[in-house]
Design a protein around this nucleic acid. Structure first.
Length: 557
DNA sequence: CTGACTTGCGCC
DNA sequence: AAAGGGCGCAAGTCAG
């Protein structure tokens, strides 16, 4: 195997395409650099990949290759994920779509990631294996070469592929999770774990209290419908049963009901059943889906990794002799907006640790909460109340930044596509709204409905440009950090060295040997600075981090 | 019974 | 004049 590998003659294979020509067989085909094609049994792939540590592996889909390599103890430095790259190119307004046409275009577009527990992973007839990744790679390279802003787009493709590696690695490593700590926490709040189908003692205790106070002896408080009728029958003027609504009321039934809802939520979302389902061998292993959200944010599946409540984070505890380095970016999106719009006045505020306070100090808005509400309104499209009143002041002081989001909103309202800094395109408006929009007069839809839909899409495109570019910053941060962490350990496989165990939009958790925690902290900061340079060059904007070195995730500030 | 939808709530 | 963005998940509800 080694004698016939792409590295023969001492040359370095820069890019190697991996293909499965038949079940259990792999074809490694150099695309650039030295080397010759190699055929090998799939079982020998980990050893082969290990021998070429700096090669960029080009493959159809990271989820179809990397988990097996990680399981065999092999970490990959870089890759090109053709599935994710294609999805980006297919929606980018920078790309001439004619380059991506082909007989199997529809199959490439439909290619879905596989999950580790998915039996299809081991199926012998994965449709992906009938596609020609070499041809697809050629199409993508041609599309990229012809694109305006191809440097930005190339960075985005590299970052997205790198994110796919991080995602697989985090699922492989898992977030350290102490089931015993979690169980103790649940028991202290609601009593010991009850038999299946029964309420824990503290919840059971609250039911008669609620029923008595509302005069509804049969009430099931878990049923929103029953609960709403009972509240109304008790004379309470409510239209829904949300906690926020109930908090406004003064009635003896409300406090026990709110307590019940809080405990009930914890039990349902992160109770014992969650532990049984999602924690194995001391690790919480969600599946991350890079590019799973149209804006470029990741989605996840399995255990609700996008919302691990603060309440249960005490159970996330580093291994003995290890620490968590928890880092999050302060106010990522307004900083990204300042930089991408080239708004030097807002960037000035963004040089302060607290961007919102800086807006107060410059006399732009009266208070920090005005600044925050105003900016959130500008980025989300909320202009009701406080948020809307601040907008004119912000627009006067920060015309380029506010102008950028306003223009994105107007473009969306016109049915146009918008894009992030690196070129990720928003989806075109679809379904009823798009059709109605094109046929404005004779479809019987009231004009006010159409206008409401248009404004809703404008809010989406307004937010898309900021959220999406923020996601690009985070991807670059993650990719650079991943490489720095690998360099910090000098031996062993991924989980023997400092490694990422959690990522959520603007926050990372690194699991590291305690004696490397300070170096990890420095690496996290350097990676953030590098991400800023990659996206915004020398534009003067800072991305300050809050970094904590802790035993438990809950102890992060 | 299953499957699609709604409600409510956690996270950024 | 009025308009907050993006997710996942569990339980209840409803249609077939």
């Amino acid at each position: 195997m080694s004698s016939g590998g792409p590295a023969r003659d001492g040359g370095v294979p820069e890019r190697v395409l991996l293909v499965r020509p038949a079940p259990g067989k792999v074809h490694a085909q150099p695309l650039s650099g030295a080397g010759v094609p190699v055929r090998l049994p799939e079982a020998e792939l980990p050893g082969f990949v290990r021998q070429h540590p700096h090669t960029r592996w080009v493959w159809d889909d990271t989820t179809r290759w990397y988990p097996q390599l990680l399981a065999a103890g092999v970490r990959v430095e870089r890759c090109t994920d053709l599935r994710l790259s294609r999805a980006l190119l297919r929606h980018s307004p920078f790309v001439d779509q004619a380059f991506l046409a082909g007989d199997d275009a529809a199959a490439w577009d439909a290619l879905a990631p596989v999950a580790a527990e998915d039996p299809a992973l081991f199926a012998l007839d994965d449709l992906a294996d009938r596609l020609d990744p070499g041809a697809e790679h050629d199409r993508q390279q041609a599309a990229l070469a012809a694109a305006p802003h191809r440097g930005r787009l190339a960075l985005l493709l590299a970052a997205e592929s790198s994110g796919a590696l991080v995602a697989a690695e985090m699922t492989h490593a898992g977030l350290p999770w102490r089931a015993d700590v979690h169980d103790r926490l649940l028991t202290e709040l609601m009593g010991p774990r009850p038999p299946r189908g029964q309420r824990p003692a503290q919840l059971e205790r609250l039911v008669p209290e609620i029923r008595g106070a509302l005069g509804a002896p049969q009430l099931n408080p878990d049923s929103p419908g029953e609960l709403l009728r009972a509240l109304q029958a008790a004379g309470l003027p409510v239209a829904d049963t949300r906690s926020w609504t109930l908090e406004q009321l003064d009635h003896p039934g409300i406090p026990p009901l709110l307590e019940y809802k809080k405990l009930s939520r914890l039990l349902a979302a992160n109770g014992w059943a969650w532990l049984d389902s999602w924690v194995r061998d001391g690790r919480f292993r969600p599946t991350y889906l890079p590019g799973g959200v149209v804006t470029g944010r990741w989605a996840s599946s399995g255990g609700g990794a996008l919302s691990v409540p603060a309440q249960v984070r005490p159970a996330a505890v580093a291994d003995a002799g290890w620490r968590f380095v928890v880092a999050d970016v302060s106010q990522l999106e307004p900083r990204v907006l300042a930089a991408m719009s080239g708004d030097t006045a807002m960037a000035g505020a963004a040089r302060a640790r607290d961007l919102y306070q800086a807006m107060v100090d410059s006399g732009t808005v009266p208070s920090r909460s005005d600044a925050k509400l105003g900016m959130l309104g500008a980025m989300y499209g909320g202009t009701r109340g406080e948020s809307g009143r601040m907008l004119p002041r912000l627009a006067r002081r920060y015309p380029r930044a506010i102008g950028l989001v306003e223009e994105a909103a107007r473009a969306g309202e016109r049915g146009e596509v918008v894009h992030t800094l690196l070129g990720r395109g928003s989806p075109p408006p679809t379904g009823a709204w798009a059709e109605r929009s094109l046929e404005p007069s004779d479809d019987g839809v009231p004009p006010e409905d159409r206008a409401r839909d248009r404004r809703a899409w404008g809010r989406f495109t307004r937010n898309f440009v900021v959220q999406g570019t923020g996601a690009e910053w985070a991807l670059c941060w993650l990719a650079d950090l991943r490489n720095r962490l690998w360099q910090l350990g000098d031996a062993g496989e991924l989980t023997d060295r400092p490694h990422l165990v959690f990522f959520l939009h603007d926050e990372v958790v690194v699991h590291t040997p305690a004696d490397l925690a300070d170096e990890v902290t420095a690496a996290v900061r350097r990676a953030a600075a590098e991400a800023g340079r990659l996206l915004f060059g020398s534009f003067p904007v800072d991305f300050p981090l809050d970094v904590s070195v802790v035993q438990s995730w809950a102890d992060a500030s």
